[in-house]
């Protein structure tokens, strides 16, 4: 009887001790639940799993894991749902990964969880989408809103010859980054292209068919319309398809933020002039690389190259924002190189 009790309390003590060491011993990979071979474990939680964008990031992360000898965990919800994402983050905290990187659906509700992770001795960061009011040590940012918006307006104005009416088909009305792009486009056109005029702004949700229908309506409403911006990855091919269907290739020019494989046919036939994005695989690679640096307790330099492919990365110690670089503009000339 007594023996049994002793055993029990010993077990409780042992578990408590384990938990304590887990809290204090930040970098011991030996007791990390998922690290079977003592490898550093970097976990990335996308907004949702199964869309080409995040799958491309995953591909980059996997490549980095192979190159750097770390373990890369990729796990996200099947819909862009903040609560489902939080459950996954909690389970990763339980697994005691070494670095936890999140692209939060809801930055505000993610902040306390990141704090919890940090208290459990996990290095925390955000990638793709920031949670600015959290304890994250780094935000791996693909591009600045300023650069991205400017690349869009510059490509559009180049196609339109710097003059004429244009409209924007955006997606979600609440997407902070898209709204920021819109402001930059407005400002840039007003400042640098006095002959360009934004005549309409509509929201199609993440719906290709609706984006195409709305672009058709826009061309009817504005007979002189010369350009359309399809802001997100659903709207970009949608507006190009609408121009193609209306037989207005060469009259109406479109640019947008589409993924390369979806845009390739439209870039080829001229219904789309350019697609502005960033190298998503490189973003995934940089995310995994950054996770390892954090787990190794290294500090990031203000400017550095990761390898031959990822050069000119910058890090601002003040805002803790790591920047992949300038946006990537896909045109008919380079789009074939990208397989996502």
């Amino acid at each position: 009887m007594l023996k049994k009790k002793l055993l029990q309390s010993a077990a409780v003590l042992a578990i408590g001790a384990l938990a304590l060491t887990g809290c204090t011993n930040k970098n011991s990979t030996a007791d990390s639940g998922s690290g079977d071979s003592g490898k550093t474990t970097v976990a990335f939680v996308p907004k949702l799993q199964g869309i080409p964008y995040f799958e491309a990031m995953n591909a980059g992360g996997q490549q980095a894991a192979e190159d750097l000898g770390i373990e890369w965990l990729y796990q996200g919800p099947t819909t862009a749902d903040a609560a489902a994402q939080a459950d996954i983050v909690r389970s990763l905290i339980q697994q005691k990964v070494d670095a936890l990187i999140v692209a939060p659906n809801d930055p505000d509700s993610m902040a306390p969880l990141l704090k919890q992770a940090q208290e459990a001795g996990i290095k925390v960061a955000t990638a793709d989408t920031d949670a600015p009011n959290s304890v994250r040590q780094v935000f791996v940012n693909q591009t600045t809103e300023e650069n991205h918006g400017k690349a869009l307006s510059e490509s559009l104005m180049k196609a339109m010859g710097g003059t004429g009416e244009f409209a924007i088909v955006s997606c979600s009305e609440t997407a902070a980054n898209l709204n920021a792009y819109i402001e930059v486009i407005k400002k840039d056109v007003a400042a640098n292209y006095p002959q360009g005029k934004l005549v309409d702004l509509v929201y199609a949700g993440e719906d290709q068919a609706k984006a195409a229908a709305m672009a058709t309506d826009l061309m009817n409403a504005h007979p002189n319309l010369k350009g359309i911006v399809g802001l997100c990855s659903a709207a970009a091919p949608g507006v190009a398809q609408a121009v193609k269907d209306a037989g207005k290739i060469g009259q109406v020019f479109t640019v947008g933020g589409g993924t390369p494989m979806a845009m390739a046919p439209y870039l080829k036939d001229g219904s789309s002039s350019a697609s502005v994005l960033w190298d998503v695989q490189n973003l995934g690679y940089l995310t995994a690389w950054t996770g390892k640096e954090l787990a190794d307790d290294k500090t990031l330099e203000p400017a550095f190259d990761v390898d031959d492919k990822i050069k000119g990365v910058t890090f601002d110690a003040e805002s803790k924002i790591e920047l992949l670089g300038p946006p990537l503009v896909f045109t008919k000339d380079n789009v074939q190189q990208f397989k996502y």
Partner: peptide, 14 residues
Amino acid sequence: GQGTSTLEQSVGAG
């Protein structure tokens, strides 16, 4: 037919 040359998993949503 009225979509683009890419089919996304959001097709049919809503």
